[in-house]
Amino acid sequence: MDAKWTFTLLYSISSLCFATCLMCTKCTNIALLFDNPVEFPLTCEANFVEANVCQLVFHMNYLTKQIHLNLTGANNTIGNYHIDLLVENKSDEPKIMNANATYICKTVTDCAKVFYKLTIQTLIKNEPILKELQAALYDPTVVNVQQCSNKQNQPVTCQNGYGCHGVEIIENGETDFEGECRNASTITIFPRQYFRITLVQGDPPLSSDWNHLGFTCNKNNLCNSQQEIKKMVILANDFYPWEFIGLNASTKKFVNNNYLLLFP
């Protein structure tokens, strides 16, 4: 290979990287406190890597008030963003109240860190909404549930039911509901009393739009009817706009601002 060809090849590679690579903060295995969630260690400041996308993975524990996170770059081919956020609250022992997120973007330099700084205070501030969801779903004095709604939203009699299970799933604009009784035979598969909300959003057509809200409740009979599920969805949207269909204008603006600056 002659010198001219070598120079041309190296120039092409460097030009390609210049066009597609981002500067992303590299900051791994970091533990932060709710009281000061953006006080990064000095070793994380101005510590950049070149990558095709910036990536953020963090775990929030609302009981210990800690955040564990990793910021880095990756060589993935995605759209402008991808977010996979899960909130889980287990009401009976052992108690759990967590939020976990993976966020990938390639909109602007260090977009994952920008997203974290824009999002984290809102997720901390909205903890009371998670407790409100728990109070709406769970009554520690109830031992047995008599009736739950089934998938057709019709009442069914439960045999030794400890709760009712309800789910709303929205996949690429199509909405589906599920419902059933929960008894001792399901404990090994599902937590006893819990709610779990999962949001996967991406830049089409490279990824899907998948919203999931599921819970097991015992607050009253038929606590998993489609009407009750929609009430929980409204509460969940106050915590974070999980359901991007039929939101009010202010919520839409809030979502768009955060994605363009590339979760609340």
Rank of each mutant, 00 (worst) to 15 (best):
T8Q: 11
T8C: 08
L9F: 07
I13L: 13
T20W: 08
D35Q: 12
P41D: 06
L42V: 11
N47H: 08
A51Q: 09
A51C: 12
V57A: 01
H59I: 06
L63N: 13
K65T: 09
I67P: 08
N76P: 00
N76A: 03
G79H: 07
G79E: 06
H82F: 09
H82Q: 05
I83H: 03
V87W: 11
E88Q: 06
S91G: 09
D92L: 07
M97F: 06
N98D: 05
N98V: 03
K106G: 10
V108T: 10
T109A: 07
T109M: 05
F115T: 13
K117Y: 01
L118N: 06
T122Y: 09
I124S: 11
N126K: 14
E127I: 01
E127M: 10
P128K: 08
K131V: 15
A136K: 11
Y138N: 03
D139V: 05
V142H: 11
N144W: 03
V145W: 13
Q146A: 10
Q146S: 14
N150L: 01
V156Y: 00
C158M: 02
V167R: 11
V167P: 03
I170L: 08
N172W: 01
G173N: 09
E174C: 00
E178V: 09
G179F: 12
G179I: 13
C181E: 13
R182A: 13
A184K: 13
T188D: 02
R192M: 07
Q193W: 10
F195A: 05
I197F: 04
I197G: 03
L199Y: 11
V200Q: 04
G202C: 13
P204W: 06
P205S: 14
S207W: 05
L213G: 06
G214S: 15
G214R: 13
T216G: 00
L222I: 06
L222E: 09
M232Q: 15
M232G: 02
V233S: 06
L235R: 13
N237T: 07
Y240I: 03
P241K: 07
W242A: 12
T251C: 02
N257E: 15
N257T: 14
